[in-house]
């Protein structure tokens, strides 16, 4: 019911606004729901609002389940 796509934050501007990069194209969006976001973070974007910061570590863990590779932190433990 709600399309949202990952976008990478390239700039934080005034009034909780920011610039994200969408496949090489930039767009101004609202960061008011993710004030702690840093440049270089991925956010989930819905109707020009970042609704959450994406944690890449979690993304990698999800993918790791499939690839039967232990997620990064577990690998480190073994080392």
């Amino acid at each position: 019911m709600c399309l949202a796509i990952p976008a990478i934050v390239v700039k934080k501007t005034h009034n909780d606004m920011g610039i994200v990069c969408l496949g090489g194209v930039e767009k101004e969006i609202s960061l008011m729901f993710t004030p702690e976001v840093r440049i270089g973070d991925w956010v989930m974007l819905h109707t020009d609002f970042a609704i959450q910061i994406i944690t890449e570590e979690d993304a990698r863990e999800t993918l790791a389940i499939f690839q039967e590779i232990p997620p990064a932190d577990q690998r480190e433990e073994k080392i």
Binding site: L3, I5, L22, G23, G24, V25
Partner: peptide, 13 residues
């Protein structure tokens, strides 16, 4: 399909 077109299509449905 250009990468940007694909991403924008995902965004715009």
């Amino acid at each position: 399909v250009k990468y940007s077109t694909r991403v924008l299509c995902d965004m715009l449905g």
